[in-house]
Design a binder for these strands. Structure first.
Lengths: 223, 223
DNA sequence: TGGTATAGATCTATAC
DNA sequence: GTGTATAGATCTATAC
């Protein structure tokens, strides 16, 4: 996939280039993962697959010695049980769940940072939050990059947070052939058990082009 | 129900006593609402009913001239579409959804406050956030009062927010007969269409008492 | 009537 | 094997 980045509180200066390279490489070589929706009126249509995407990222980062599901220390247990990924002073959250998680992840990162909590034997210095672009059809109310960007921009304007954050948006070019991993799971909802998986070529259709008036925005076409 | 309160940033001094009285009255005379869970391994067991509770609060506050679903102005549209309730300078969020909404609601209230956004023809001065106590069985990951309290306590300690907030927790006494509204909806999940509703007497069992060892914590018993 | 955007409801997955 | 706690997945409800 392609990525877009927005940095807050000088994340660009603080983020270790080698650590960032490991994250960036992983995301740039990742194919778009899609699955069938089970939402009324759009059953079977292809949407962004958070299960497949999360699994891919985990399978890439863990061999690069990123720790997964790092436990949150007891003194902060009211902020949750664990952090998605971490290496040295860098925390990573991959967030495809509902939109309020953006401010949850941001504020708890702020507290981890203010208290100099250890991530991977080093005090936390910077957070990377990975989201998906608005261009992809997806489950209702799932967080998207542009929404996260607008919210963090506003927080930055009002000086609500000090923690350096690199916000990452996963995107693709519209109307361009891309690699897509299309997965069927054991159940229509929630399941992480793969029943069938195909790697195909496809594209994301942009509604705003004249000849696709009848298609929906961000429709994913595979063939 | 009974309530517990925690105030942040001098909400006690800023909250208009008459407006608070209207909220408090509503909550104190509200019965505990329960419904059947559809979660695997506990299908049919009674859990806190957010649908019924939300509807009750709306039906009480609207006649008291609290505005419901107040639109968020366009300049803040990235923070959402509306606010649950508002009257004059006071904003109310009733939050029984998943836990990240606490920090979402807190931070967006902070921005509304910092920018002096109008609620009901007056600039916002204080937020009231209504939650349910941890004592009640409930859907997984739904926000509860003690969790909200711990999170806001920590934010207050690190001076992350300035907006006055009154956090409210809905509770009941354990092992004590209370009024319970038990509702069946048209579908097992999500529905807001009432099929059957009974007002009964019941109680919330506390696991920690010796003679209830075999019961689960917070079990709601009706009879 | 259908599409969009939350907001809310509430499940499964997973580790302890 | 059971209960608890998130974290994540992802639906329906509702208004525009």
């Amino acid at each position: 996939m392609k990525i877009d980045i927005t940095d807050y509180n000088h994340a660009d200066e603080i983020l270790n280039p080698q650590l960032w390279k490991e994250i960036e490489e992983t995301l740039l070589k990742m194919p778009l993962h899609v699955k069938a929706s089970d939402q009324a009126s759009k059953v079977g249509s292809l949407i962004f697959d958070p299960v497949g995407t999360n699994q891919y990222i985990k399978d890439e980062l863990v061999p690069k010695h990123w720790k997964n599901n790092i436990p949150i220390p007891k003194r902060f247990d009211f902020l949750g049980t664990d952090i998605d990924f971490g290496k040295r002073d860098t925390l990573v959250e991959v967030q495809f769940s509902n939109y309020p998680f953006l401010l949850n992840n941001t504020v708890r990162s702020e507290l981890f940072h203010k208290s100099n909590m250890d991530i991977d034997e080093e005090g936390m210095k910077v957070a990377i939050i990975i989201t998906k672009g608005h261009m992809f059809p997806a489950s209702n109310s799932t967080l998207y990059y542009e929404q996260a960007q607008n919210q963090l921009n506003s927080l930055a304007e009002y000086n609500v947070f000090d923690v350096p954050i690199r916000l990452v948006g996963l995107i693709e070019d519209f109307e361009t052939d891309i690699d897509i991993v299309s997965t069927t799971y054991a159940d229509k909802r929630y399941s992480r058990t793969i029943t069938k998986r195909d790697t195909v070529k496809g594209k994301v259709i942009d509604t705003n082009t004249p000849n696709t008036r009848r298609r929906k925005r961000g429709t994913i076409v595979t063939y």
